[in-house]
C-alpha cells in the first residue's frame, strides 16, 4: 500500500511546535471520508511515516485536517511543511469513536493536551446532530492556556455544549480552572446509567481520569479511550503496535475500557 499524494493547502501554527495542516488530495477523486478517532499515516518525503489522527470535521469533504506536534524527526518534517508542499497519505486506518453508542446519551469528552485533536473530530460530529445526544460536556486539560488547541473554536461552541477548561498554570486573566482535569471531573455530576465518556490524552492522564469516572460509578463499558503505541505499517503486519493481544492500528486506536482493562494496568506491556 503506497501513499497518495496530498498537498498542504493551509497551515496554522497552534502554538510553538504544533501546527494544524489542511491537506488535499492531488488527484481530486481521492476520497477523504473517515470516522472521528481514525488516523492516517502521513509520509514526509525521505524522512518517514507516522500515524496522525484526523482533527477536522468528518463532514468536510475538502481533504483532511491533521494537527501535528513536532517532537521527532518525522513529526518535525511534517510540522515544517509549508503551504503548497506535498505529503504522502495512507489511510484512514483504525476504529474510531463508537458514535452509535453515544446516541441519546450524556456525552463526556475528556481531552488532555494534544489529545484534543482526535476529539475535535468527534465534537464536530456530535454538534452536527448525528447521533443526537442529550448532553455534551467537554473537559479539556493542558499545561497552560497557551498550549490549548482550538481554544477560540471551543469557546465559540460553548453556546452549544458545556466547556470546562483546566490548566496546571495560568497567568493573568484565565476564565478556566487551575489545578488538574481530575478536579473538575470529580465535581461533574454524572448519571452513571446514561453517560458515555470519550478520553484522549497521555496515558497517565487517562488513567487518573478513569479512576475518577469509575469512582463515580460510571461502568467500564461506558468509557472509551484512544491509545498510542509505536506504529510502522498501520495494517497489522509490522507487529510494533501490539499491546497484549491488541493491535492498536486495527483493533484500536479507540478501545472500550471494559475490553482492555486487563491490559491497561500491566506495566511495560
Amino acid at each position: 500500500m503506497i501513499p497518495a499524494i496530498f498537498r498542504v493547502e493551509e497551515r496554522n501554527e497552534e502554538f510553538a511546535g504544533t501546527v494544524t495542516l489542511r491537506i488535499r488530495g492531488e488527484a481530486r477523486e481521492v476520497p477523504t471520508e473517515f470516522n472521528p478517532g481514525q488516523f492516517n499515516m502521513l509520509y514526509a518525503f525521505g524522512t518517514g511515516e507516522i500515524p496522525i489522527s484526523m482533527s477536522g470535521s468528518p463532514a468536510d469533504g475538502n481533504g483532511y485536517i491533521h494537527t501535528i506536534r513536532s517532537h521527532g524527526f518525522v513529526s518535525r518534517a511534517l510540522a515544517d511543511l509549508r503551504v503548497g508542499d506535498a505529503v504522502g497519505v495512507r489511510g484512514p486506518f483504525g476504529r474510531g469513536w463508537p458514535l452509535d453508542q453515544a446516541a441519546g446519551k450524556e456525552v463526556l469528552v475528556i481531552a488532555g493536551g494534544l489529545g484534543m485533536a482526535p476529539l475535535r473530530s468527534l465534537i464536530y460530529r456530535l454538534l452536527s446532530g448525528t447521533p443526537e445526544v442529550s448532553r455534551l460536556r467537554v473537559l479539556y486539560g493542558a499545561r497552560r492556556p497557551q498550549e490549548m488547541l482550538f481554544l477560540t473554536e471551543l469557546e465559540y461552541w460553548s453556546r452549544r455544549m458545556e466547556l470546562i477548561l483546566s490548566v496546571d498554570h495560568a497567568e493573568g486573566e484565565w476564565p478556566g480552572h487551575i489545578g488538574v482535569i481530575t478536579g473538575p471531573l470529580d465535581k461533574a455530576e454524572i448519571d452513571p446509567d446514561n453517560t458515555i465518556a470519550f478520553l484522549c490524552g497521555p496515558e497517565v492522564m487517562m488513567r487518573f481520569c478513569i479512576q475518577v469516572l469509575t469512582a463515580k460509578a460510571l461502568p467500564e463499558s461506558a468509557i472509551f479511550l484512544s491509545m498510542e503505541r509505536n506504529m510502522k505499517c498501520a495494517t497489522g503486519h509490522c507487529g510494533h503496535c501490539q499491546w497484549g493481544p491488541n493491535f492498536i492500528c486495527k483493533n484500536g486506536p479507540v478501545f472500550c475500557y471494559e475490553g482492555i482493562r486487563r491490559w491497561f494496568d500491566i506495566r511495560a506491556l
Binding site: F45, G48, K232, C233, C238, G239, H240
Partner: peptide, 10 residues
Amino acid sequence: CFCSTVEDTT
C-alpha cells in the same frame, strides 16, 4: 516471527 520495520532514506 513476522515483525518488520521500515527505513526511509534520501
